[in-house]
Amino acid sequence: MRDQPDNYGYPRHVLPIIEKAGREWSREEYSSIVAWLFEEPQLRMLLTLCLFSLGSSATPQDAEDIWMEFCEKRLEKVSKLFDPERGSGFWGYLRLCLKREAGHLRKPLERRSDNELGLEETYQTTDGEVEFERASAPEQAPSEQWEFNRLLGELLLKLSPPYREPFILVKLEDRNYEEAAAILGISPGLARIRVHRAIEKLRNNEKLKLYLGMTKETEEEE
């Protein structure tokens, strides 16, 4: 079975080289491919792939080291082995080889401690101050809603700051991910991930599940 060609958006000067049959790249062509791979968008993606393939214990430095080593020792060989006649795209082939290389160096996955406190533990700021104050519910609010407010407030108080802060900024204060990221000094992608991970952590709380009527008992009864 032939490989599927990739649909990577190659720039014009790269296409004639990678589509060339016969695997014979001149030195200039090879250099031009290397220069393209080291442009910011490609490089960020390849470094992220290295990081992903190296596993959860890897650091950005590990990813950079493996990529530079790959370029020095393997990239030229990879370019000679790549054959567009087989139907695969260069980008896909390169990723496959890089992933395999990084995979050899992957250490056993270690569960990364992110200093997060469990929801069952009460979070306090370093100076001992408890930041949360219950929002005053309007008089017309139904008691059920007041109950939910109180529960959510309680759970947010227990959620560790790396998740709680992005969640509050985005979900309660209506800021977008870019704004939240700028306030928190993290990337918008990470802010977005933390908001959704906060949801995941909150929804796994037994009290909330019970409140939402989604406990196993309730499901069985239904």
Binding site: E131, F132, A135, P138, Q145, F148, N149, L152, L184, G185
Partner: peptide, 17 residues
């Protein structure tokens, strides 16, 4: 994380819903 919350968490009824 350097950000420190300066005011209490407010949950409006609409947000809660």
């Amino acid at each position: 994380m350097t950000h420190k919350r300066s005011r209490p968490i407010q949950i409006s009824p609409q947000k809660a819903q």
